[in-house]
Amino acid sequence: MTSAVYIALVFYLISSITFFWSGFKNSLEKMAFSLAAAGLAFNLVILVMRGRISGRLPLSSGYDFLLTFIFITVLMFLIYAAKYPVRNAGGPVIMIAALLLSAAAFIMPDKSSGLAPLPPALRSPWLTVHVLTAAASYSGFTLAAGLAAVQLHKLNQIREETIYRVVSLSFALLSLSIVFGAVWAEQAWGSYWSWDPKETWALVTWIVYAVYLHLHRQSKWRGKPSNLLVVAGFIIVLFTFFGVTYLFSGMHSYS
């Protein structure tokens, strides 16, 4: 299973570099796309294997969450890339996926935690919907950040609207994740909101993108300022996942 992680990582890295390179040589774009798809296939293999070993969807630990988050990010990007010609956008998005997978491979300490039996609090159907919507929203914000990074380099109206659409979808998913998590917390802990660090930073992330959605509707905020906000929001997404997990203790300690 570990070797599959390294193989997926290598595919993502080469794909990202090829996407960057395809800015100079258009013929490389298809190759970069295929490399990303190959990485995605190995990513899927890891998730399926972990699911088979644990006997449930691989969503119950931080390591599983990160693998799912990366998988959905690359999947979203490939769907997006199949619909629109992407060129430079693939470079940053797949590079982020590769860096996240590097973190999973080299930094995360306990890769076996998601394979152990679930503690009582996690034995709930809300686990699946809460974590899946969170992972999908993070993936959308990652895709939006990659597109926004390119948009900061070169303005394009259709891409601007695409970023808005992707952020809207991801914001909706994050809102659903927070609502599902609150319903679950009410059932399990007796409080739908406890100002737990993960909850607090999920709220901060939600606020950043809510501000973006409001500001984007005003022409003076479109372009560079709103794209900077999308990139800043993604940095907060990363802090909400990595920073809060490793710097704070709280009810989400298993994530």
Partner: peptide, 19 residues
Amino acid sequence: EAVLNQNQRCDSVNGRLKY
């Protein structure tokens, strides 16, 4: 307040989007 910025229209080339 939403008004589309006409200066930021898409720079499409022959129906394909340029990125």
